[in-house]
């Protein structure tokens, strides 16, 4: 199990989707996950600490868990199958632990709001996206970096881990 933090949310210039960049807490290894624009936006808001005037969907999810007293222990990116990532949310209630199937986008948006730690299995890190970091970084237009909405920090050379 590898602990990750959300490094940033990028716009994929080829589609309307966003790319959530998860990064190993110590080291340069990253796990890019393509998510829908709605979920990407939800993650970005949480990263930036924006509190909307009315609760958005993931805020409601957090409020439900918080109000009824569920303890969210962690979210884990558990699997990748045919380019689809799978995640689980782990909650504790009544001395039992439950795992709930979720899309990674929802799991991450939720984890940032709770907040709780984010992990990926070693297997997922090994098979991530089926391509190297260099390839997907090249696909991203350089002009996307440095935009106001960009929170991706290019201070290290990610290819070192690829």
């Amino acid at each position: 199990m590898i602990r990750l933090k959300v490094h940033g949310v990028l716009d994929d210039p080829n589609t309307e989707n966003h790319v959530v960049v998860l990064r190993k807490e110590e080291g340069f290894e990253v796990l890019p996950i393509w998510v829908g624009s709605v979920e990407g936006h939800a993650i970005r808001l949480a990263l930036e600490g924006v509190v909307p005037p009315r609760p958005a969907s993931h805020d409601l999810l957090r409020d439900i868990a918080r109000n009824i007293g569920l303890v969210v222990t962690r979210v884990v990116v558990t699997d990748i199958n045919e380019n689809t990532y799978y995640a689980s949310i782990y909650i504790k209630a009544n001395d039992s632990e439950y795992s709930i199937d979720a899309r990674p986008s929802d799991a991450i948006a939720f984890a940032l709001r709770v907040p709780c730690p984010i992990y990926a299995t070693g297997d997922v890190m090994k098979h991530r996206a089926g391509e190297t970091l260099d390839v997907w970084l090249k696909r991203l237009d350089s002009h996307n970096f440095g935009k106001e909405s960009m929170r991706f920090n290019c201070d290290e050379n990610p290819s070192r881990s690829a």
Binding site: E39, S57, H58, L60, L61, I64, A65, I68, L70, T84, I89, I91, A93, N94, Y98, I100, D101, A102, R103, D106, F110
Partner: peptide, 15 residues
């Protein structure tokens, strides 16, 4: 795959 509101329901159902 479960959408966000499906996840809400799963969360509530699971406990």
């Amino acid at each position: 795959r479960p959408m966000t509101h499906d996840l809400m329901k799963t969360l509530v159902d699971s406990v």
